[in-house]
Amino acid sequence: MIKVVFFAALREQLDCHETSLTSADITTINQLKKALVALNPSWSKHFENKALLSAVNHDMVDGEYSIKSGDEVAFFPPVTGG
């Protein structure tokens, strides 16, 4: 099972903070995005945003990064702290 969390504007757009997926076919961030959109077609436009960032187990990663069961994956907009 892969735990997926969303933050800030993205969390509000999806109206979802946390979900989870179980699939042996999902091995990268990009595949996870596709699987999430397939399950929730209305999320499609929010995942087209190229600026969207992703993290695996609290480290920022890119779309080709490998993921596995037990990982925590996060999607969020560019950060604006400070």
């Binding site: 933050f7 993290a55 604006t80 702290g81 400070g82």
Partner: peptide, 11 residues
């Protein structure tokens, strides 16, 4: 770096 790497968001 905090400005571009640390996951904080302002509303």
């Amino acid at each position: 770096y905090l400005k571009v790497k640390a996951p904080f968001w302002k509303k």
